[in-house]
Design a protein around this nucleic acid. Structure first.
Lengths: 338, 338
DNA sequence: TGCGCTTACCGAAGCGTTTAGGACGATGAC
DNA sequence: GTCATCGTCCTAAACGCTTCGGTAAGCGCA
């Protein structure tokens, strides 16, 4: 514990190396026009003095911070949480720091406050994870000003760059999987219907059912948790619903559903086939192993960062939507209808 | 999309309000000696001009950033992930920004690189989540220099401030719960034994078994995942182990274990009682509902931040360890031995 | 030799804040 | 009426870095 070592600056290094402080700056920033020998001498001095550049000073003059911000909501849930993780990882690979700020609620004030703060911090770009439907998405463009900005896990809107996973496609895969197995009576427990993903999956389930001329009235709204899946099944059963296929909005809910069906003496997949969504690592160890829809969050993170970085480096990069597609993972919780 | 609006500074606000820039600074920083009327006028001007202070400039002169860093490892796992989440939340409440940097590996180089970077950023304090046993913990104190620093989820060491959950206590609760139910043949599948938590739980299980004069040779090392729990049980069974109680290192592993036992025709809890660890939200919906050990990650986050903040505000705060205790949650995966 | 070009380096200015260290009136005590 | 005191505000000097313009030296070419 040495105390109050005076911080060493560019000048100290310069003096030690016998050059001007400006030359040291060039070395640090890999500029040309520095003789190889001088460069080495400077690098050596930096090492010896254990010099660390002061980012605040640099930011002050460059107006950049090599940092991208992630404004997120709902990261306690699997999907948004995975997105956050993967974005952080890929941002680092691209040489950017990440500054996450998770919102308590997806309100205009909270978003504005968050973006205001980011302005103060000279953020280079923003990725926003906004899984909940709001009516102020359009204004966000104004709030961010000219900071490059992309949205993920949300409803694509023209004029806003975004990277999304096609939820409708995923949900359709799930429904068609059951239909293909001969099921005709298919129930659904959706996610909370103010979440973009939940709405898309729900709509797609309905459309698919209609497309095959099957009834789509057996639907209950849940809340992403295992508990809500459990209760959702109870609601369906109490309401007298008869079904041999069950589409769940995510894997946790599927777990709860399986527990409830089990308690009611309904066998899976003999009596009812269950499909989940997300493909969490645990789903292969449910009893029975869960058939589910896999979302590639790694690719989502990769694409988001890559796109944002290109937006930062070249502001004229055209705004567009990038769409990824989920896939069905077939396990043991589904079987042919009797 | 307006282009290149010149950034407004303290001076612009001052000019607009008809005061000096220093007065504006005082208003922003809530200093005394500003007449109420002047203060209002300044605030008004700030609003009108949509002024946002430049944090980099402020940091440059104050040498602070109101930011605490979290150096973490293994946040993809439930425990560390929860810690990170809760710390971020509580830091925000305390008026601190959070800058997470997750390490690829818990090596000396990676930690040094991370801390070096934090030095550049004028970080106010560091919380380190280091769940893996390393031999360089001691040096960390040197690396951080005089930046306040606390460790969590690690082996408490004298001279290093830390907040931890007593893993040995938790594991003892699990084992004693089974013993109390009359079980004598108790197996264990531990976490990876280079993780601090795993070691503590494993040791404590052994000690507890010895304390009750029970054999403690039935133990397999796992890897935190459901898969490893599944495989662990298979290993035990193949090895001819006979047990009526099973202590798992976490809930995901317990899920895998249950699946494996199920496949082997072993009933839970009739034939074997299973105890998990963590109390993840889903564990209540396992089949059967899982008896497990609950860790209070909210409290852990709260305590960590509070302690670090006090360390920042008053560097003379004495270094100590804060220990929290887990609790047993009794559900249906355990029953009296036959 | 003189010209212009390149290479390697330097000095100075400025980024937007905070923070001493005063200046200036107004106030109250003597 | 004078002097000290206090509240309010201001000027000036940093903080550590990048970058613009400039200079001296070295080189080839006529």
């Amino acid at each position: 514990m040495k105390s109050s070592q005076k911080t060493i600056t560019l000048h100290d290094v310069a003096k030690y190396a016998g050059v001007s402080y400006q030359t040291v700056s060039r070395v640090i920033n890999n500029h040309a026009s520095v003789a190889e020998e001088t460069r080495k001498r400077v690098l050596k001095s930096i090492e010896v003095l254990n010099y660390r550049p002061n980012r605040a000073a640099r930011s002050l003059v460059t107006n950049r911070s090599d940092t991208i911000a992630i404004i997120s909501f709902g990261t306690a849930f699997y999907g948004p949480g995975q997105m956050l993780q993967n974005i952080m990882q890929h941002a680092k690979k691209n040489g950017f720091r990440v500054l996450p700020s998770s919102l308590r609620q997806l309100s205009h004030e909270d978003v504005k406050a968050a973006i205001d703060e980011l302005h103060e911090l000279l953020i280079d770009g923003i990725i926003m994870i906004s899984p909940i439907v709001t009516d102020f998405v359009v204004e966000i463009g104004e709030l961010t000003g000219d900071i490059p900005f992309i949205q993920i896990d949300t409803k694509p809107k023209p004029g806003i760059a975004s990277v999304v996973i096609d939820q409708m496609h995923g949900s359709k895969l799930a429904a068609e999987h059951l239909i293909g197995l001969g099921h005709r009576k298919i129930a659904e427990i959706s996610g909370p219907l103010n979440w973009y993903d939940a709405i898309m999956r729900h709509q797609s389930w309905m459309e698919t059912m209609k497309q095959y001329r099957l009834p789509c009235h057996m639907s209950v709204e849940g809340g992403w948790s295992a508990q809500s899946g459990y209760e959702g099944v109870q609601t369906l059963l109490k309401g007298g619903a008869e079904f041999t296929g069950l589409v769940m909005a995510n894997d946790q809910m599927a777990l709860g559903a399986i527990a409830a069906l089990n308690e009611a003496g309904i066998r899976i997949p003999e009596d009812v086939s269950v499909v989940g969504f997300d493909d969490i690592p645990e789903s292969a160890y449910f009893i029975p192993a869960l058939t589910t829809v896999h979302q590639d969050f790694v690719a989502l993170g990769e694409q988001s960062v890559e796109y944002l970085v290109s937006l930062i480096k070249n502001p004229k990069t055209p705004l567009h939507q990038r769409v990824l597609y989920p896939e069905l993972v077939n396990r043991s919780s589904t079987a042919a209808a009797k």
